[in-house]
């Protein structure tokens, strides 16, 4: 059933997130339940590097009211919201009626949730869902979903775009001099050098 949603790799996700203007724009990322925590940890660092903004996490473990309050108090430029798995329909309905309080002008964020939670959200929070629009994706954590041919094609496009070789990009990353365009993050992932992303902070 995950297949009904558009699946994005980390690289594509970074590009999409990086193309967003500084605004009240929200994205939902649907991942396997067991992957939620590691995804939050990975994305917090990676987004910080490639969107050039301070990123914070906000937990929904204590319900919608507390989550909304913590979003209101947060000082970071971008927020990762997670731990929705215990939310019942009523909690999502509360979240929906309080939607306006999420709008902090130039700050948006990302909800990381399981498919089950996504169903409950989309059924019970129609006003928030209208904010999400097409920005709901499933997450292919690594780029394995691409065939080798697709990886080569994309790498060739990136080389042409930047006028750089793979080796030059790796050297830039090792020396922490990688430009902050999201394409470079995707590039490292396609080269199986995703570990270099963490050195860019």
């Amino acid at each position: 059933m995950l297949s009904i949603l558009k699946s994005v790799s980390l690289g594509e996700f970074l590009q999409r997130a990086g193309s967003l203007s500084d605004s009240n724009i929200w994205i939902a990322l649907v991942v396997d339940l067991k992957d939620i925590q590691p995804t939050v940890e990975d994305l917090q660092d990676t987004i910080e590097v490639f969107t050039e903004c301070e990123t914070g996490t906000v937990s929904g473990e204590n319900g919608a009211y507390e989550l909304i309050d913590r979003v209101a108090d947060a000082t970071q430029d971008y927020l990762l919201l997670w731990q929705f798995e215990f939310w019942q329909p009523e909690e999502w309905r509360t979240f929906d009626t309080l939607r306006s309080r999420l709008d902090k002008g130039k700050i948006g964020g990302l909800l990381i949730l399981s498919l089950e939670s996504a169903y409950v959200m989309l059924t019970n929070a129609p006003n928030f869902a209208s904010w999400l629009g097409a920005n709901i994706y499933t997450f292919a954590k690594d780029a394995e979903m691409l065939t080798q041919e697709e990886v080569e094609k994309r790498l060739a496009a990136l080389r042409e775009w930047a006028g750089k070789s793979d080796a030059e990009v790796i050297t830039l990353a090792e020396n922490q001099m990688l430009p902050t365009d999201p394409e470079y993050g995707e590039w490292l992932i396609l080269l199986n050098r995703g570990e270099l992303l963490e050195q860019q902070r």
């Binding site: 009904i4 949603l5 558009k6 169903y119 097409a134």
Partner: peptide, 12 residues
């Protein structure tokens, strides 16, 4: 296609 899929999920 993406928006349509988002709209369809959650429908009873």
């Amino acid at each position: 296609s993406s928006l349509a899929r988002s709209k369809l999920i959650g429908l009873s």
